[in-house]
Design a protein around this nucleic acid. Structure first.
Lengths: 260, 260
DNA sequence: CGCCTAATTGAATTCCCTCAAGATTCGTGG
DNA sequence: CCACGAATCTTGAGGGAATTCAATTAGGCG
């Protein structure tokens, strides 16, 4: 379904927060938001970006949860990233067209769409936008590093605890505060690279340890501090998501502009 | 040791190739190369970038091999990236100052240094440079994705074969063609997240399989095709390193400039 | 020639996987 | 509102891949 509505502050709130965190001032944000030509409502399970297809558009999550994934040769689904409101689904293709992962919706979602043409125009007028995207790419690389480190060096409990922490902190960073992690066990398995059986056992361990809630459907955090402690989670690697004010100064200097 | 010499085409050859592959035209490359204020000679084992230290400079490998790494809480060294001539050691810190990995030299190396101040000036005059760095960051993220996928889904033989293939192809991309992979088994282990014991056994398997040379020191490729075959290696994810001419067209269009 | 680093080998153990079956929950339609 | 089917989650048992610990051999350099 295509809605003709422009993207107002109501729908785009998370995106605005994210753009600010990436270092864009209000002018640049306004310019970026003006680019949205339309929005799509996507149903759970449907594809947002098709593998191999190169539509000349940027797609942005406005609500819901999605994942970027690939089917590996052994037939399993490898989830590379979970995407929440404010996240760009396929921004890398703009500079790296040969990337061809698929993105599909894990819950009912709304996405906004920006044609490349308009984006190019804006980038030219506001060079800071490409710096912001550069920063975003570095942030994403940073997340992957953490995942590599996790996958190869740590036992499943810490691994899954860390994955959960990351999701919680990222959601909070764009203003979505909830004790429910909106993922299924199979999603966690495919992202962490563990079998769903083992994920299940590990989640039960986390429940026993008091980190997750017992006797309730889905994955609900009972004790966030405990979870963070088990994961030995240090959120500093996500700092780009919620650039602190004292940090803003430094970035602002680097951007030749005061933030806001 | 600090050399007062400017960075001439002789020393910077690999870097020039890399900058071209990232989509910079000759003007932009010249501007970038003019920024080098000095070069350092680094000895094997020494640190190029210190963890936590934020020098306001960009560091670029001009020759040799280095690795970006971190010591994890369990005391092991996690290698995130190998860096060869032309690679930027710490470019991410420019947009993400809170990153604090260390980089140290695995062989005797020469690095070039660019103060942030000069870089900012150039970026302002040549906005394409930040797009190029954006592209570079995406490329790096892409490499990590591959590593996650490898680490979680594939057996050690394929994992190590893939790691070796990646190094060979990256070295070739900047014009360094050799059948010797300039890494030790312990480096491979810390990068792949395997124990050095198991890496050793796996390398012996690769020798038995005819991919690596027997009876010679270090890691020498006996049969590249065989190695690629074992790794099921598809180099397309590294394409940004050797942007093909037909691709260049597309990128050039996106950059509002003809390449070269 | 001897020292230090790197590579190699063996044996026991642990973590996670696969396969397979059973129990819940959820959504849908009657 | 209940019943039924499908998806999700849960549990058990057995096996394999990689780890750790420990000891030995080869290589490189002063």
């Amino acid at each position: 379904m295509t809605l003709g509505n422009p993207v107002g502050p109501d729908v785009a709130n998370c995106l605005i927060v994210k753009l600010r965190n990436l270092g864009l001032d209000s002018d640049e944000r306004r310019a970026f938001l003006s680019l949205f030509k339309w929005t799509h409502a996507i149903r759970r399970g449907d594809e947002i970006v098709r593998a191999g297809k190169s539509l000349k558009v940027l797609t942005v999550m406005l609500s819901g949860v999605a994942c970027r994934y690939r089917i590996t040769d052994n037939g399993r689904r490898q989830i590379f990233a979970f995407q929440y409101a404010g996240d760009f689904c396929d921004y890398c293709r703009y500079v790296m067209p040969q990337r061809d992962d698929a993105v599909s919706a894990l819950t009912d979602s709304i996405v906004g769409v920006i044609p490349y043409a308009g984006f190019e125009r804006i980038v030219e007028r506001h060079p800071q936008i490409s710096v912001a995207f550069w920063r975003n790419a570095v942030l994403e690389a940073r997340i992957f590093e953490e995942r590599v480190s996790n996958a190869t060096q740590r036992p499943a409990v810490e691994r899954i605890a860390t994955l959960l922490c990351e999701q919680i902190f990222r959601l909070e960073a764009v203003g979505i505060v909830s004790d429910v992690v909106p993922l299924m066990q199979i999603d966690i398995a495919d992202a962490a690279g563990l079998s769903s059986v083992h994920v299940n056992r590990t989640i039960q361990d986390l429940r026993e340890l008091g980190a997750l809630s017992k006797n309730c459907p889905g994955i609900k955090v009972e004790n966030k501090d405990r979870l963070v402690q088990i994961a030995k989670f240090d959120a500093s690697y996500l700092e780009g998501f919620w650039t602190r004010l004292d940090r803003r100064q430094e970035l602002a200097g680097r951007c030749h502009k005061a933030a806001d």
